[in-house]
């Protein structure tokens, strides 16, 4: 029997816009077990990327709970807007508002210590906790690969290990073998193809042996043949490393690589199906 990796209950993420409140996530209840490969499908603006951001602790839910491996995931404290921010003034072009806009930089400087201790410092601390959570538990693969162009393929993987104080050249080379790029390890990203770059990004995301691998439109920048190859490599690597995966995509054809397909629309899960 597989064990529960993470659990979200009543998760909401609301954005306050001038035109009104946008409910990007609207009461998500979601559980993921170890070893699952989940594809999150949904149209643009459905909330799937926001959900991914909440899963990686990049974004802080407005309400609801999120536990990872039985522990609550760190989240940023709510921003306390003090009177010194003069934010309650309407943004119209009245003389008072113009005066307030002139005054604002001054109050920002004058009240910097209060702002720092009431908002900046707690938020920075929380942000570091969230970063630490990602470092220990999350791997991330981006649509545009985002490899560091100044580092070789091998160095890109080693860098992530070094930042986590766990440099392991053996593992880095093993991961490159796993994604079929052992012969390209000393080449620079610009010298290999897009598909190869994405495979390096996958190896990089596995460098610290994360428990959860997240991918945001990770084949969105590749042709279908390369996408197939990348996904095959990814599934193989995740199975070999025993890593749970959540991929956000528009591409229905990727569902064949999933063990579970979750559809989301208007911030709500509308279907959740096991594939195998």
């Amino acid at each position: 029997m597989s064990t529960l990796l993470l659990k979200m209950e009543g998760l909401e993420r609301h954005y306050h816009m001038p035109s009104g409140t946008v409910k990007a996530l609207d009461g998500i209840d979601f559980e993921i077990n170890d070893g699952e490969r989940i594809i999150l499908l949904g149209p643009s603006g459905s909330g799937k990327s926001t959900l991914l951001n909440c899963l990686s602790a990049l974004d802080t839910p407005t309400s609801g709970t999120y536990d990872f491996a039985g522990k609550s995931v760190p989240r940023s404290p709510k921003y306390v807007s003090g009177w010194w921010n003069l934010s309650s003034f309407p943004k119209n072009r009245t003389a008072l508002n113009i005066f307030v806009n002139i005054l604002r930089p001054l109050t920002k400087v004058l009240f910097f210590p209060i702002e720092y201790f009431s908002n900046s410092r707690p938020m920075a601390k929380a942000s570091e906790k969230a970063t630490s959570f990602r470092r220990e538990n999350i791997g991330y693969v981006f649509q545009f690969f985002n490899l560091l162009q100044d580092l070789t393929v091998l160095e890109n993987i080693l860098l992530i290990q070094e930042l986590a104080d766990s440099r392991d050249v053996k593992r880095a080379k093993h991961l490159l073998r796993l994604v079929g790029l052992e012969n390209e390890m000393h080449r620079f990203p610009a010298e290999i193809s897009g598909g190869q770059q994405q495979r390096v990004a996958i190896a990089r995301s596995l460098a610290k042996k994360p428990r959860l691998l997240l991918g945001d439109e990770l084949t969105g920048n590749l042709d279908s043949k390369t996408s197939e190859k990348v996904m095959t490599v990814l599934v193989k690597a995740c199975e070999s490393e025993g890593i749970t995966c959540v991929f956000v995509t528009h591409d229905e054809s990727l569902t064949k690589y999933a063990t579970r397909v979750v559809r989301i629309d208007s911030g709500k899960i509308i279907s959740d199906e096991k594939v195998m």
Binding site: S56, L58, A124, S127, E128, T131, S132, R134, R135, E136, I138, G139, Y140, F142, N146, L148, L159, I160, L163, A164, R204, S205, K208
Partner: peptide, 10 residues
């Protein structure tokens, strides 16, 4: 930003 998302401490 990439490094931060991948968990690089500040």
């Amino acid at each position: 930003a990439t490094l931060r998302v991948l968990g690089a401490p500040i």
